[in-house]
Amino acid sequence: MRIPYFPGCAMKTTAKNCEVSAMAVASKLGIEMVELPRWNCCGVFPSLVNDDLMRHVAPIRNLIRVQEMNKSGIVENEYRLVTLCSMCYHTLKEANLFVKDKEKLTKINTFMDREEEYEGGVKVLSFLELLKEVGYEKIAKEVKKPLKGLKVAPYYGCLLLRPREIGIDDPENPTILEKLLEVLGADVVDNPCKVQCCGSYHTVDKKSIVAKLTYDNLRYPIENGAEIIATCCPLCTFNLDSRQKEAKELYRDLKEIPIVYYTQLMAIAFDLEKKFFGLDLDLYYKNPKPLLKAKNLY
């Protein structure tokens, strides 16, 4: 399967570990994620007001690239676009809903006079959905080194789940990530904070707010026995990991815990080459390697 892939800025910067592991995992499963030959920022955050058309130009421009890929033969009749980043997923999918209003779509198409017209037929997918489609049985066959004894708490964040018409699973109690982690052989720990907000973009100028949320969001899974958190979103990952530093200054009782993408856990469970784990990159506050070594997984 060759499928168009939208990386987004994070996959090329602070979430390289997510991309490198996801690409390797995908190819093991027979999926070739073909990066859009030309792409721009997804447009995050989508504007939520009705009359802000300009803010929807960026995502629509990226969806047009999928049409172009089909026309130039880079992919064959594949109008789905897969994303790894929750924020990109949310923004691209929201834009697709926004232009269901034909009047808005016409205006946006007219504005982008150098592009071909967007026809509204691209489907935006998150990588988790694609994995579900591939099937957990097929994934289970690739698990060569089950994550036995690794106590993992899932963390979804907001934008992959809400609002309901955009979300990939139940907005209050999703289970798609738990199912995947079980297939990987992990001991899945219940995380009551799994759909909470990480503090998002406040991390730029309100670190104390994010530090409090980081403390709240980590305390309960840790109490439940979690040793590591599996995340989906690059911004959640950054906040949950790097803001532990600020959280510890405010809340002395916080125990540090490593944060990794579920795609990294997949690469580990598939027993791929270590370079695909993305653990050597200089991206971590709490390094996951010691824990993984202790569990004979690294």
Binding site: R38, M54, R55
Partner: peptide, 23 residues
Amino acid sequence: KCVSCNTCTKACPQDLEVMDYVQ
């Protein structure tokens, strides 16, 4: 803050893909 409107590209007398390089 770039919203990918491509106005810069259209404004370039050298015909550069300005938006693409800002991105």
